[in-house]
Nucleic acid binder design. Sequence first.
DNA 1: AATCCACAGGAAGCCCGGGAAC
DNA 2: GTTCCCGGGCTTCCTGTGGATT
Length: 414
Amino acid sequence: MRPIFKNREYLRPSYTPEELPHRGEQIHQLARILVAPLRGETPSNLFIYGKTGTGKTASVKHVSKELERVADRAPRRVEVVYLNCEVVNTQYRILATLANIFLEKLEKRYSAGYVSSLGFPESVPMTGWPTDEVYRCFFRALDHDPQLAVIVLDEIDRLVLKSGDKVLYNLTRMNSDLMKAKVSIVGISNDLNFMSYLGPRVRSSLSEEELVFPPYNALQLKDILEQRAGMSYIDGVLGNGVISLCAAHAAREHGDARRALDLLRIAGELAERDGVETVTVAHVRRGFEKMEQDKMVEVVRTLPSQSKLVLLSVVLLTERNSHKIVTGDVYSAYHKLCRQVGLDVLTQRRVSDLISELDMLGIINAQIISKGRYGRTKEITLNISPIQARAAVQEEHPFGSVEALSLPRQLTFA
DNA sequence: AATCCACAGGAAGCCCGGGAAC
DNA sequence: GTTCCCGGGCTTCCTGTGGATT
């Protein structure tokens, strides 16, 4: 059987392409702002906003690569440092990381051992030092040479949410104390409200320039997908309408290119698993379902344990019998499960609310029905496969082994 | 037409943890 | 450190309800 992928890595989020279709305008603007150091000026600080999968990070990386390439011939050295604040999310970690990066650059530029000959430490430990000591170390390493440091803080909202805007205040204020070097901050966020978490001084200095990345529309997504499909799939394996359908799905999800590419890759992997040589729209549809399921499993995984138990009751009842499941059944099953695992038993009123919440999340379907003389209740069906639900509930083992749990016989109705 | 089931879901209030104010 | 306040999870108590049954 022939393979269908040339190289699937080009469809993964980690890959940054050479060409970024439909981001010409943003890249041009970015370049215009960041090119200032080549003329010896300090570029403004920059704030970039856009939803996930709109090409923010890719564009910035693209421009900084260009910038570093042409900076060799410029009067002043330009160093671009990229930090993802999801990982590096405290003042200390940011400063320590920056200090280490610039110490290393010094060492490389001069000679091994040069750094310690200046009285610098080999490196800053990732914990233990007073923060101002770390700051001083970074400051001196940076100011050793005339250079411009462009510090890119991706997902900057995470940083501010976790540790406040103190780091940003310090970084934006540095320029007035630096003798030879200059810094410029590029903040990237997908939370538009982010600016309101900042103090007024930081806000105004960070947003000297602002750039917005609008979501892609279906046509633009199609271009992007076509470009990547050409790199990653063998010619001719993609059936009619496959790319259009991927683009249409992602356009509905706020124009997220990352999701579009994921979908295109997953559709291919499904075709591969089927052992066929063509990817069809049916594979895309299944791929879409798979992604939705995966999203659902993730939601289940993060549910509080009481909700998990309620869901588990529904799962066990679903596996056990084919007749309609109603609130009363779920509650008595839940009651027994609570006893088995030693969790507090909530009231039926509360469990009713939990069932509604699971319904809202789309994990189950709960429809109010009236059985006349036999009352009014909710009829409940599971929206994800019992096996997946079980697996997701079982993770982290809050109830010991779920396999050991079972409903007593009297709960099975004829 | 009246009854009655098996809940739905609103209202009020308790309890507790976390953050702000003192 | 203490006090105050707020919001979320939860309970208690309650009224409401669609339609099979009487």
